[in-house]
Design a protein around this nucleic acid. Structure first.
Lengths: 347, 347
DNA sequence: TTGAAAGCGCTAACAT
DNA sequence: ATGTTAGCGCTTTCAA
């Protein structure tokens, strides 16, 4: 039953008070130009004095549109997604759309359940980042019911997306590292199964290393995309062939890596260079600022939203790769002059 | 008109296929225990083969509940709010609620418009942080329509909230600074009109300075809560009576302040101590880690959600102040010895 | 320019 | 244990 005994007044109530039909009140909100100015003014007055607002649930049911979009991201604790959210949400709000939001923690089962909940709520469209677009349950559901959607950060041949060229960007960063003299680089990521971005970035790094004749690119897998493990770093850095630069697959992981390295006695970038990927505001606030691949996250969110709304108005979506650039920062330098001789580090 | 020619099947369609009435199908979803096992199984089979899911908009309209809550926060780019979001959203999702999200950028007009949009969508309840709870338009609207809501971070006498004791926490931090020998401390905030938290923290700092006989606490106002201004810092740090410690009203502002200070040639904490407020994960990733007042943001969000859901089930809400603690970090140290005032070491 | 009427998909009395 | 019926609040033909 309704919330209160004194239920919120409906359009019928307003119509009665204004001495018009419900249809006319509806028109006052949706097609005011159809009404005689006097009628419109009168209805508006009643509406204002009542503080009446049309119930969007009734409207949604009847009109078949909720004017709500879904936003599904791995976690807002990674600032890259928080920035994307802001870009998308602002755009949506300014277009009169509301946003339902859920985070997945990079877990495919949660992705699928959240998408199901969104569909049940009859959202008009969805912006999302999934772990891996290929054979993804959530994306399959969206396609099955023909729900308009845009991927962000993911790249896909079957679903429209907004991202950067992850592989190309990783190549660029490797190029920059090589130009400084690094020949042994390790790529640090979370579980690859959870992130096609990480996979593409690793692939790009390896591709470029091969092209430039660098040493083989090691790949260190951390238990999460959001934090490095000190033990793994410590173990992997042992030995004479330790890398001189660590290329982390995102800024948060890079920040965490640097924190551990410093605690282990390394000086970054003197002893070891570290760079990230994302170019988040957080990275620029680090001391020294994080060297990273900048992607325009806020714009990625806004563009995805713009594409989605175009589609909702009957247009077509297309995939977009926005430009990236290397953010110099201060956590990458030339490798130590003699990597074999004793470094002045105090572990 | 509806989205597609082949509109998604409704409960009536399922009923027809299963040879039962719509009410029975509805019961299969909502009160399965009322049905004969055989009937239930049969309906379930039809539902599965059809891939049918009940339309929540229809349900919402009829039942007078959307099982959706709103979440309204200043910005997710401040990690303290992102952490809060995750705590609240996870709790809501696990209770079967969906979340509508909006950010306000600390702008009261946006607060009011977003709340209005939420109300129009018939959310069941709302968790929010406002600039200032007193004479706040958004809160007034919520009260006027008796919409269940919980403030987070704000403290209020008229609205239920979940927060920490902001004033007490600021006192504790001042105490810690004083114990290290600091006698001249400046508090760094964004515009006070936008944040009662900043006001309370400033008040607590001044209260404690007075109690301990420290020098007057300067107050530096930055143009935003999310970034410090280098010019203001530079100007304020001139002169012989410059503070030896900066107490920033949040972690993001502290990070930004430190970045500027380092660029200006200061060494933190050797030349100048800096601390923040929030105890975000971001702060622990800084080098050195940020000294801060830790508040349990994720738990604040989860607690607010729990309280709200209790209220929605007919219970009562109550305001909660969760415990804070000083997070030592590495950005605060004794003041430089060369300071005019003799250092007063505390045993 | 406005009104009457039907119905979006669902649930909950009430009836059987 | 299940069916019948009446709407929740709104929009939208169609008719006047």
């Amino acid at each position: 039953m309704p919330r209160k005994a004194a239920s919120r007044s409906s359009i019928v109530e307003v119509a009665r008070k204004a001495g018009v039909s419900p249809a006319t009140v509806s028109r006052a909100f949706n097609q005011p130009e159809l009404l005689k100015p006097a009628t419109l003014a009168h209805i508006k007055a009643v509406v204002r004095s009542d503080g009446f607002r049309p119930n969007r649930v009734g409207r949604s049911l009847r009109a078949g549109s909720t004017r709500t979009i879904g936003l599904l991201l791995p976690t807002l604790n990674n600032p890259v997604f928080a920035e994307c959210f802001e870009g998308a949400e602002r755009h949506a709000r300014q277009a009169g759309y509301s946003v339902m939001m859920a985070t997945t923690g990079y877990v495919p089962e949660v992705e699928a359940m959240a998408v199901q909940a969104f569909l049940d709520h009859q959202i008009d469209g969805l912006i999302l980042t999934v772990g891996t677009p290929v054979r993804n349950a959530a994306l399959a559901m969206l396609q099955a019911v023909d729900m308009p959607h845009m991927l962000v950060y993911n790249e896909s041949g079957k679903h429209p997306f907004v991202s950067v060229d992850n592989r190309g960007a990783a190549r660029d960063m490797m190029q920059a590292l090589a130009a400084l003299g690094h020949r042994r680089v390790a790529v640090v990521t979370g579980p690859l199964s959870e992130s096609d971005r990480a996979r593409r970035r690793l692939a790009g790094a390896r591709e470029q290393a091969l092209a430039l004749g660098l040493g083989e690119v090691a790949h260190w897998v951390m238990p999460a995309h959001t934090a490095a493990s000190r033990d793994i770093l410590q173990a992997a850095l042992r030995g004479p062939d330790a890398p001189t630069a660590l290329f982390c697959s995102n800024d948060l992981l890079a920040a965490s890596t640097i924190t551990h390295l410093v605690a282990m006695g390394y000086c970054v970038p003197r002893d070891l260079s570290v760079c990230g990927f994302d170019g988040t505001a957080m990275g620029t606030l680090m001391v020294p600022p994080l060297t990273s691949v900048e992607q325009p996250s806020s714009q990625i969110g806004a563009t995805a939203c713009a594409q989605l709304l175009t589609r909702l108005q009957g247009g077509q979506t297309r995939s977009v790769r926005l430009p990236h650039r290397i953010l110099p920062g201060g956590t990458v330098a030339e490798p130590p002059t003699s990597t074999r001789t004793a470094r002045s580090k105090t572990p």
